[in-house]
Simulated assay, not measured.
Amino acid sequence: MVKAGAASSVVPLAACASNEGLRFSSLAAAQDAVTKLAANGIPKSDTAFSWAQTLNHLAQSIEYSMTGFPESKSRLFQKTAGAAAFQVFAWRGQMTHSLSEPIPGAPALDRGSDPKQGMERLVAAIAAFRNWPGGLKPHFAYGELDKASYELAHAMHIANHVSEFKA
């Protein structure tokens, strides 16, 4: 687990001309970049998920950190490979994972869903997470994360997906 406060040690980077290597140090920075990217219409990408699916996928992940993931890897996986993967991502300040892989056990994402509703859902999930008063549920792969670590995980997750979209 990354120690509390470690998330703030990641240098905040705004979206650059190319989204490749995009990094965010906080959910606020991620939300600002996603909002700016979507300001001129629906961003384009060759990824398997549409823009609306991506926004809903990102919101799902944040929501599940508060309510619990539908399926999880074994505790052994979480404490070994999952924890190690998160540590590497946190050290790099950047996550890489399959951008077409749904959250295990999550409802299928509708390709034709409304991007505006997806954006509203993501913004609401970020606000709920930032104001969440209770404990957080274990991540399906990384296991137990404190709030600062979870925020970093969510910010890196958003950056990884958004990096594939262009205005």
Rank of each mutant, 00 (worst) to 15 (best):
A33D: 14
S45N: 10
A141P: 03
S9G: 11
A108L: 07
P102K: 03
V123S: 13
Y150F: 14
Q53H: 03
L145T: 07
P107E: 10
M119W: 10
G105I: 08
Q60H: 14
S149M: 00
D114P: 03
D110Y: 00
Q60K: 05
K44W: 05
P102W: 04
A48H: 09
G112M: 05
F49T: 01
L55E: 04
F165H: 06
A125Q: 03
I158L: 08
F89E: 08
K137D: 01
T96N: 12
F86E: 02
A141K: 13
Y64N: 02
S149Q: 09
F69D: 03
A30N: 07
G68K: 01
A90G: 10
P115Q: 04
L22G: 05
A15D: 10
L122E: 04
F89H: 11
K116D: 08
E71C: 00
A84Q: 08
L37P: 08
V2N: 09
M66C: 11
P104A: 05
A124N: 09
K3H: 04
K147D: 01
E120K: 10
Q53W: 03
K73F: 09
C16V: 10
V88K: 15
V34F: 08
S8L: 12
S45T: 15
T67F: 04
T47L: 15
W51S: 08
K44Y: 07
S26Q: 01
